[in-house]
């Protein structure tokens, strides 16, 4: 019996595949994935959001945003290089995390923009809301070389909200209509600088 269990554990580990322990975040991701049958019941809202950036990297860097329901504390996560459609509970939501991450050459880079911005929106049950496009534009400064240390380069970034509902592809809008029974309407996130933390740009 002991040999059997040791062998089972060996197979487990030798497969170079340690199972990922399911986490509460995974439950949130599963619950907020759009499902037409659940949406048809009328309690949830569907939200469409786009998030892009032009950071210089070989592969597009991920835009990770987390929003929290003001009343219930429910979270939902957006992790995208383009467009996401999610299904969330109605209510008022605030941005609690905004991080751009990804590979830049040999290193993994993360830019935490959370302190710089405040964002919020409100949806009702049955809404099919286009929240806008969160675009981060980056300006790379001149590289400065130092004989005694590595080169440095200033990076200036600016994140702003675009309203691109008219530029959404027709086939995408058609799919939204088919799966939700409604056309999407513009319900833009209120996106602003966190002036109280001293950010004005």
């Amino acid at each position: 019996m002991k040999r059997f269990f040791l062998f089972a554990i060996f197979l487990f580990a030798a497969g170079c595949h340690i199972p990922t322990v399911p986490s509460p975040d995974m439950l949130t991701i599963v619950e907020t994935a759009f499902d037409p049958a659940v949406f048809a019941q009328g309690r949830k809202a569907a939200v469409i959001i786009e998030a892009t950036n032009d950071l210089p990297s070989e592969d597009p860097m991920l835009n990770n945003l987390t929003f929290k329901n003001r009343r219930t504390g429910e979270l939902f996560y957006i992790s995208t290089t383009g467009r996401e459609v999610l299904m969330i509970s109605p209510g008022e939501y605030d941005l609690v995390k905004f991080v751009i991450s990804g590979s830049m050459g040999l290193t993994f880079s993360e830019a935490d923009l959370t302190p710089r911005y405040r964002a919020s929106f409100s949806v009702k049950a049955g809404d099919v809301a286009y929240l806008g496009r969160v675009k981060t534009h980056v300006v790379m400064g001149k590289k400065e070389y130092d004989n005694f240390g590595p080169a440095t380069q200033r990076v200036r970034s600016h994140t702003f909200l675009l309203n691109g509902i008219d530029s959404l592809p027709a086939d995408f809008i058609g799919r939204i209509e088919r799966l939700t029974g409604k056309k999407p309407t513009s319900n833009l996130i209120e996106w602003r600088k966190n002036a109280s933390a001293g950010y004005s740009r």
Binding site: G15, H17, P19, M26, L27, V30, V38
Partner: peptide, 25 residues
Amino acid sequence: VSVYNNPASYPFLIGLFFKANRYRT
């Protein structure tokens, strides 16, 4: 709502053909 490990992903090499987790809502 539940997310659970997929036992089909455990066996050596064969498990690589299966996703590590499954979900049910």
